[in-house]
Design a protein around this nucleic acid. Structure first.
Length: 260
DNA sequence: AAGTTACCCAACCGCCCATCT
DNA sequence: CAGATGGGCGGTTGGGTAACT
């Protein structure tokens, strides 16, 4: 009856992940793909909850992740989508390739919210703050709004595959404390480079990749050019079947916006 | 230089829905 | 069909660090 519990909680480690743990997890996912998360820690030799492994992978170790602050385009898109979808971060993240729901949620709470308030816009309702009564949303606007979102998404998509980590915090636009340079993706990238280089599977034919051929995703040994990224995704999907590696956003976007 | 405050974000918590037995 | 779990999701927390006093 039912399923076995996710993890026995006893002897399960919590807190920040070590490089060793990251390597184990990456190694395991690369060899076995994402099977059931409950089994991952045991099979990978980790003293972690399966849930924790899933989170670590989707939010940090996934090879397609972009790093650094959200670009202006991405921010605009997040705001648009939030106006339509509310706090459904996973849905919003699905429209931003390489971004996680957690990342977007954090960025919203720490940056965008403040920006909107500064601009006199209620981050919840997206209405002017001094407005007394929030008018009912005009559904006639829906189509227009969605079109705007689609356009933004499309623009973004075209940037993503060709830009080299365009999210790098150049901060030419952010004028306030958002430009704080605490988020230094460089260190992270070094760490990730180390983790991925230490995995014995980088030249696994499954991935059909090598560090030498890498470009924008060089730190993960992934191809960078538009063509290559598409091919990489196809190989990726082909090799791992229907498993969702958190790349649904790409195929999703292709489905919705790829053809025009 | 030391202490305090503010900020950021990775990770955890708890809930919900789909799925399994 | 009912009960239980897995996986996904949004909300929250706590540690680390930069900025300020």
């Amino acid at each position: 009856m039912g399923r076995q519990p996710c993890c026995d909680k006893l002897g399960v480690k919590k807190g920040p992940w070590t490089v060793e743990e990251d390597k184990k997890l990456v190694n395991f996912i690369l060899t076995h793909g994402q099977c059931c998360w409950r089994a991952v820690p045991k099979l990978a030799g980790l003293r972690r909850c399966g849930k924790s492994c899933r989170l670590r992978w989707t939010n940090y170790l996934r090879p397609d992740l972009k790093r650094g602050l959200l670009t202006e385009d991405e921010e605009r898109l997040v705001i648009d989508l939030h106006a339509r979808l509310g706090n459904r971060w996973s849905k919003i993240a699905a429209r931003l390739p390489g971004r996680t729901d957690n990342e977007i949620k954090n960025h919203w709470n720490t940056h965008i919210k403040k920006k909107l308030i500064k601009m006199g816009i209620d981050p919840l309702t997206h209405e002017p703050l001094n407005k007394e009564v929030t008018p009912q949303h005009n559904h006639d606007d829906d189509h227009h709004d969605l079109e705007v979102i689609h356009e933004e998404s499309q623009k973004l998509c075209s940037h993503v595959s060709s830009s080299d980590n365009s999210s790098a915090p150049t901060d030419q636009n952010s004028s306030t404390d958002e430009s704080r340079s605490t988020s230094d993706p460089g260190d992270d990238d070094l760490l990730m480079n180390y983790i991925w280089s230490e995995t014995i599977f980088l030249d696994d034919p499954l991935w059909n990749i090598s560090p030498e051929t890498s470009g924008s995703y060089g730190n993960f040994g992934l191809p960078s050019s538009e063509d290559n990224s598409d091919r990489w995704l196809l190989d990726y999907e082909k090799d791992f079947g229907d498993e969702d590696f958190g790349l649904g956003c790409f195929s999703d976007m292709d489905m919705n916006y790829g053809t025009q």
